[in-house]
Amino acid sequence: MATAQAFHYRMPRRVAGQRPGSHRGSSLGAGQEFVSHANLYDRPDPRRLDLRASVRSLSREWLVRVSRQRAGVTVQAVVDVSASMAFGAHTPKLQVAADFVEALAFSTFRAGDALGMVAFDATERADLFVPAMLNRGMGEVMSRLIRQCRTAPGSVAGLEQAVARLAPRSGLVFLMSDFHWSLDRLGPVVDALAHNFVVPMIIWDQAEIEPPAQDAIAALDDSESGTSRTLWIRPLLRARWRDNVANRKRELDRFFAARSMRPFYVTGAFGADAMSEYFFEVNA
């Protein structure tokens, strides 16, 4: 097994929580980030006595430095394991998701965040549920769960159930799916995750977004609905295929932009650098 590629991520906003971690927190405690001075009798921690400030103070009292501590968050991987995710010309999209989960587990452990996983197809998949925990070995377990799971036709209803489990908490949510569904019902689901920082990961296969190069007759079966369609792949159709993909991409961009999210597109394979860059840009 190839070593997981770690990526760097930081929450773009302050996180609540007492557990020390690497994100900027909102709670006071042991940290480098100065907030204010406080009376020694209010915060009896003589280790943080600030003599210079105490001498300068007009009220002639002992002042201690108060700072914010960095906190850890709970990271949740929400994975779509519907049948369409099993599609892929060379590697199934689920494999891409599994690779990412492995990288994510590696990165979260380094950052000191707990990682959990929720999977869904038409309903929430209880067999693939992993509660959030700080455990170095969990990444491998999760990715194996994903790699070996059996797929079934999926729907937004499954996502609704999965999100219901996460919604009250706050944290970082990676929502992995190919988003091959109507966006009408997706709005409320994403809105329910408002307490979290959501990274919509749109996983597409190269064969989905780029039509085959040679002219041919393609008899296709939908992996979820079972309907079939025959396409005569020719330049005209190829242009319309690319148009459809571009339109869908625009639609998704607009949908997530309205919720101040930026979708992260994965095509073919997951790139850790691209993910790091995504977070740098979000935090900039």
């Binding site: 369409s84 599609f87 079972g226 993909v245």
Partner: peptide
């Protein structure tokens, strides 16, 4: 019969363009 062995799986047919010529080819087949 709707089930055929010679078809390729595709994740989501709905986002592929409708193709009349392809439909006619399929009917002809």
């Amino acid at each position: 019969l709707p089930n055929r062995r010679d078809t390729l799986q595709f994740s989501h047919l709905a986002w592929l363009p409708a193709d009349r010529a392809g439909h006619m080819l399929s009917t002809a087949w």
